[in-house]
């Protein structure tokens, strides 16, 4: 790779490493695994940098690579058998977030725990739409599917998330 290309890749990597790791964490629920996913994603982008660097939607390309990398990793047996969803605390975490009430923070933990119980593509579409704030068209481009699929997966994902959170709340209460 030419030195100029390598420099532009470095700038891209520095600008996007944190964002990729946060999205990866929401998908997988583990910061260490999220860091591996981020690194592998950036290495894959490096390999095709000369081809993709002029792409106007480079950030979305990075999201696509991250998504594929995560889905590929999930196929591996030690990922299949791992429990990514941490145990739900049976009470609020008083030590966290001085600005918010513990009850509210506990409820927000439930959103992520509920998310981690969804099928992978529903999980991905909710992260892209509600965390990355992508439009339906952008999410479709990242997921390499139609806008109709994004809409239907989003609706199903939200229903499943609500059911999952209700289930978690019920389990803690009982």
């Amino acid at each position: 790779m030419r030195q100029a290309d390598e420099e532009s890749f470095r700038r891209f990597a520095v600008a996007h490493a944190g964002k990729l790791r946060r999205s990866a964490y929401l998908l997988c629920g583990d910061w260490h695994f999220a860091e591996d996913l981020m690194q592998n994603t950036l290495i894959k982008i490096y390999r095709s940098w000369s081809r993709v660097q002029k792409d106007e939607s480079l950030a979305n390309y990075g999201r696509t690579v991250l998504l594929r990398t995560w889905l590929d990793e999930k196929r591996r047996p030690w990922r299949r058998s791992e429990q990514t969803a941490a145990a739900v605390p049976d009470r609020s975490d008083d030590a966290r977030g001085p600005g918010d009430s513990p009850e509210r923070l506990w409820a927000q933990d439930l959103v992520h725990q509920g998310l981690l119980r969804l099928p992978p593509r529903q999980r991905a579409v909710l992260v892209l739409r509600y965390f990355e704030q992508l439009s339906v068209a952008e999410a479709a481009a990242v997921m390499r599917c139609t806008e109709g699929t994004v809409k239907s997966q989003t609706a199903r994902g939200l229903d499943a998330l609500r059911a999952s959170v209700s289930h978690l709340v019920g389990r803690v209460a009982s």
Binding site: R21, R22, Y25, G97, V111, H112, L126, L158
Partner: peptide, 24 residues
Amino acid sequence: DVRSGLRDAVADEPPLHFDPDELV
């Protein structure tokens, strides 16, 4: 609620020790 829940889920993000030279 979903937006804020996801946003807050990464609020406790551990420090990122990212070295672009090492990655390259």
